[in-house]
């Protein structure tokens, strides 16, 4: 048991081998093998329909809730194969997710952030207060909403809803945070603020950041993977890739903006 724990502690945050994902038999992503080290920001770039989102969905076992989606190969989170979890919900609780389009749930701002704790059985109001304030502060939203925590989260502006979504993900106290093109519906100023937040969070959790902005990956990610039409073209140190050290010419072409 102790040995197992050591092993788990040493394992990469996410370890993927020969991953293939299909929707209703149609291949969306194949032949993906990569490792996401702990406490780093890992960038995933690539044009639309490259399988980036599918990759994230395979990590937190959303295939269970997506009709027609099947996953082959192995996906391990912190040393444990995700499909060997008996309680997939417990797995998802450890993994925070932020979507391309912000989703403020139609409940109060307070309840949005307290929801995760409530689902785990926290009833004590002062405990919830602490969680809500901490997460909203870390998502750089607290100052804007602290006086109206009782208003509907779904009626905030897009940028605020995206930070609310991040606060909600943080309220899960996750060890892994998956971000799926979080800046798509957000203004540049908010994007910069969120990027600052992510840079701070790196110390505490592993962040996988799918992005359509290659410069965003360059600013934040220590390693970057390039997905293209359902295939992993290459993974490497971000700086190496951007400094012209890509092994595959398609990566260089994409990074130079020749397509995508």
């Amino acid at each position: 048991m102790v040995a197992g724990q050591d092993q788990a502690a040493a394992a990469p945050a996410i370890d993927v081998a020969d991953l293939a994902i299909r929707y209703g038999g149609q291949l969306a992503l194949a032949g993906v093998t990569l490792q996401v080290p702990r406490n780093e920001i890992f960038g995933i770039i690539g044009p639309a329909n490259s399988g980036k989102t599918s990759f994230l969905r395979a990590v937190n076992r959303m295939d269970l809730l997506t009709p027609g989606m099947t996953v082959e190969g192995s996906v391990s989170v912190e040393g444990k194969e995700v499909r060997s979890w008996r309680n997939a919900y417990a797995l998802r609780r450890r993994i925070g997710v932020v979507f391309p389009l912000p989703v403020g749930l139609p409940m109060t701002i307070y309840e949005n952030v307290a929801l995760s704790a409530r689902l785990r059985g926290t009833r004590n109001r002062s405990d919830l207060d602490v969680i809500v304030e901490r997460c909203l502060r870390r998502a750089a939203l607290w100052d804007e909403v602290k006086d109206r925590l009782d208003s509907l989260g779904s009626l905030l502006s897009g940028g605020q809803q995206q930070r609310l979504t991040i606060a909600r993900a943080l309220s899960q106290d996750p060890s892994i945070l998956l971000l799926d093109e979080f800046s798509i519906a957000v203004d540049p100023v908010t994007t910069m603020r969120i990027e600052e937040v992510l840079a701070e969070l790196r110390a505490e959790m592993t962040i996988v950041m799918v992005t359509n902005l290659v410069q965003q990956a360059r600013r934040l990610a220590s390693q970057t993977a390039f997905f293209l039409t359902g295939e992993l073209v290459e993974v490497g140190e971000t700086e190496t890739l951007f400094e012209g050290g890509a092994r595959d010419e398609r990566t260089t072409a994409y990074l130079e903006g020749k397509f995508g």
């Binding site: 919900y89 993994i95 997710v97």
Partner: peptide
């Protein structure tokens, strides 16, 4: 989806959202 991704069960999602 937002609820499921937080680790809410189907039933919790139904009840809360």
């Amino acid at each position: 989806e937002a609820c499921w991704n937080m680790g809410a069960t189907r039933w919790q999602t139904i009840r809360k959202v």
